[in-house]
């Protein structure tokens, strides 16, 4: 557990977070590993976790009939993914799959949600950090939509 605490404490995402909250997060955290190709979650399932990737690569994808899975974003070592646990109806909207062997810390969002409700200071600290992540995703998605490279190949 000490190891988990160190990892969380040193993660830039949690920089400046009070030690007591870090300890609380450690209580919600567990080590997980996924094989290459393994689904981490699937569209429609209950969203009860988010992940700190410690090693490997994850792709967020969606299944488009006649096209197969379309990859929307990849996430790599050091990055965070999954925020559907934070907003109702707490369901995943996309699939997430390990591209290669991936190790991560999974944080129990359900447990964290309850704790945030009880302690709004914690709630604010967590919200603030996830708002950044969501804003960044939105910005990147908009840029993706701009399709800046002009000429279109087949798709």
């Amino acid at each position: 557990m000490e190891n988990l605490e160190r990892i969380l404490k040193e993660h830039p995402f949690l920089a400046g977070l009070d030690d007591k909250y870090i300890k609380l997060l450690v209580g919600c955290a567990s080590n997980v590993a996924f094989k290459a190709g393994e689904y981490i979650f699937r569209e429609g399932e209950n969203a009860n976790q988010f992940y700190f990737i410690r090693h490997g690569k994850v792709q967020v994808e969606t299944y488009v009939p006649q096209q197969g899975p379309v990859i929307i974003r990849t996430r790599s070592e050091g990055e965070i993914f999954g925020w559907s646990w934070l907003v109702p109806p707490y369901k995943w909207h996309f699939d997430a799959r390990a591209v290669e062997v991936t190790r991560a810390l999974a944080l129990d969002g359900k447990c964290l949600r309850d704790k945030c409700e009880e302690d709004h200071n914690l709630g604010y600290e967590i919200m603030k950090r996830f708002a950044l992540i969501i804003a960044e995703r939105l910005e990147q998605t908009r840029m993706q939509l701009l399709d800046v490279y002009g000429n279109h190949s087949k798709k």
Binding site: K57, Q59, E61, Q67, G68, P69, V70, I71, I72, R73, T74, S76, E77, G78, E79, V99, E100, Q140, M143, Q144, D147, V148, Y149, K155
Partner: peptide, 23 residues
């Protein structure tokens, strides 16, 4: 390397090029 969009066979990064700068 990263690409803006890809389907199943691609094992590399997906996301706009600016996403690479941070890491």
């Amino acid at each position: 390397l990263t690409v803006d969009r890809a389907t199943g066979a691609w094992k590399g990064n997906v996301g706009v090029v600016t996403t690479l700068i941070g890491r």
